[in-house]
């Protein structure tokens, strides 16, 4: 009996969803351990780490993204239920929201409009093409929502995900020094603005700094997911 042909085994595995599903979970696990080892510093983001790791593996093995996605789609699918599940923490925070309803509403509109408007203004001033603007417009919304909005606007969903993730990381890094420079001491204001601008990654950062800031960041993320879905198509129409 011949020794099993490694090339045959590889070509079998590469056709099956199991390989890239396993690779996705393993890469995230490794990146998450790295992030923990780095003391959860904002730059040591596990999503970024896993994306870099998998991108290198795909490039080295010459695997097209479509083949990778055939396996990874099972993980990607969970983004939809996750957005629906955001309803639960949002509903649980209802008492706090009611108490600060006016500041919350005003800050939501200000943060959302400022984020979408300046992003599209800067990018279109530098001649970024319209289909890329469509992926940029929803970047302050949490990635699953940004992906859904970009798809509806004719932007590439994967580019929208990358831009949203980058926004989240920038927000997590700049929030504390920026808010200190503005001499703002209200933890609700600091957290809420960070959640509106930098969704889940900003929220995770806010929870590290202060519990109240974290709760209001989660609220900001949830509300801006809704407002961005409404504002982004209008804002995009102004810039193209």
């Amino acid at each position: 009996m011949d020794a099993p042909d490694l090339a045959l085994i590889w070509s079998y595995l590469a056709r099956e969803p199991l390989l890239w599903l396993t690779a996705t979970l393993t890469a995230f696990w490794m990146a998450d351990r790295l992030s923990a080892a780095a003391g959860r510093a904002p730059w040591a983001n596990p999503v970024l780490g896993a994306v870099i790791l998998l991108s290198v593996v795909l490039t080295l093995t010459g695997t097209p993204y479509a083949d990778y996605f055939a396996g990874a789609q099972f993980v990607h699918f969970m983004l939809g239920p996750a957005v629906v599940a955001l309803a639960v923490p949002l509903w649980q925070a209802r008492a706090r929201v009611r108490a600060a309803a006016l500041p919350v509403a005003a800050a939501l509109v200000a943060g959302s409009v400022a984020g979408i408007g300046t992003a599209l203004a800067v990018a279109s001033a530098f001649g970024v093409p319209p289909e890329v603007l469509a992926a940029l417009a929803p970047k302050s919304a949490t990635a699953p929502v940004a992906i859904g909005i970009a798809e509806r606007l004719g932007g590439a969903p994967t580019l929208a995900a990358v831009l949203a993730l980058t926004t989240g990381m920038i927000g997590a890094v700049v929030a504390t020094p920026l808010l200190n420079a503005l001499r703002l001491t209200d933890w609700r204001a600091r957290g809420f603005a960070t959640g509106v601008a930098a969704h889940g990654l900003g929220t995770a950062r806010a929870f590290q700094v202060n519990e109240t800031a974290g709760a209001f960041a989660g609220l900001g993320m949830g509300l801006n997911a809704i407002l961005t879905a409404i504002l982004a198509p209008w804002a995009l129409a102004l810039f193209r």
Binding site: T24, L25, A27, F28, V47, L48, A50, V51, L54, S55, L58, Y65, Y68, F69, A72, Q73, V75, H76, M78, L79, A82, A143, P144, I147, A156, P157, T158, L159, A160, A161, V162, L165
Partner: peptide
């Protein structure tokens, strides 16, 4: 974790 497949895009 759920962001990873789209990010690899």
């Amino acid at each position: 974790l759920f962001f990873v497949p789209a990010g690899v895009g």
